[in-house]
Deep mutational scan, measured.
Amino acid sequence: PREAYIVTIEKGKPGQTVTWYQLRADHPKPDSLISEHPTAQEAMDAKKRYED
C-alpha cells in the first residue's frame, strides 16, 4: 500500500501569504510532490484516494 503525508506551506509575498497543502510521498523518490491543494479537506481527500 502507498503512503502519503501532508505538508503545509505558505505561498505569496510576506504579509500576504496564503496557506496551501501539499500531498507528498516517498515514491518514486523521497519527498516527491504528488499534488497541491488550497484546503486541508481537499488534501485529506487526495491522500485517501492516493493511499487506496
Rank of each mutant, 00 (worst) to 15 (best):
I9S: 04
T8C: 13
P38Q: 13
M44Q: 12
D52L: 14
D31Q: 10
Q16S: 12
P1I: 14
E42V: 03
A43I: 01
L23G: 00
D31T: 05
Q16I: 07
M44K: 09
D31L: 06
D31P: 07
K29A: 13
A25L: 06
A46Y: 04
A40T: 06
K29R: 13
I34E: 01
K13P: 15
T19R: 10
T17G: 08
Y21I: 01
E42A: 10
A40E: 15
S35I: 01
A40P: 08
Y21D: 02
S32R: 15
K29F: 14
D45I: 13
A46E: 04
I34K: 04
A46W: 03
P28S: 06
L23C: 03
L33K: 03
E36V: 07
K48P: 00
L33I: 13
I34Q: 03
T17D: 05
A43L: 01
K11P: 02
Y21P: 03
V7M: 07
Y50C: 03
S35G: 03
P28V: 07
V7F: 05
K47P: 00
W20M: 07
L33G: 01
P1V: 13
W20A: 04
Q41C: 10
I34M: 03
M44T: 07
D31M: 11
E51N: 09
P14K: 10
K29W: 14
I34T: 01
Q16L: 10
R2P: 11
A43C: 06
P38N: 07
H37P: 00
A46M: 04
Y50N: 02
T19C: 08
L23K: 01
K47Q: 08
K13H: 13
A40H: 15
W20K: 04
T8G: 05
A25S: 15
Y5S: 04
G12Q: 05
E36I: 07
D45E: 13
K48L: 11
H37W: 14
A4R: 02
S35M: 01
K47C: 06
K48N: 09
W20Q: 03
K13S: 15
K13L: 14
E3D: 10
E10M: 11
L33C: 08
D45Y: 08
V7D: 02
K11G: 04
D52A: 15
D26K: 13
A43M: 01
D52I: 12
G15C: 06
K48Q: 12
M44L: 14
V18D: 13
W20R: 05
D52M: 15
S35W: 01
A43G: 02
L23S: 00
A25N: 06
S32Y: 11
E42N: 04
K29I: 14
Y5I: 06
E3M: 15
P38T: 12
A4I: 10
V7S: 06
I9W: 03
Y50I: 05
H37K: 01
Y21M: 00
H27W: 15
K29E: 14
A40L: 15
G12K: 04
D52Q: 15
P14I: 10
T8Q: 12
P14M: 09
G15Q: 05
T19K: 11
P30A: 09
I34F: 02
K13Y: 12
Y50K: 02
K48T: 11
T17C: 09
R49I: 11
H27D: 09
A4P: 11
T39L: 03
R2F: 12
A43Y: 00
D26N: 15
P28I: 08
E10R: 08
L33F: 11
A46V: 02
P30K: 12
R49F: 09
E36K: 02
W20I: 08
A46H: 04
I6D: 00
K29C: 14
P14Q: 11
K29P: 15
T39Y: 04
P38F: 07
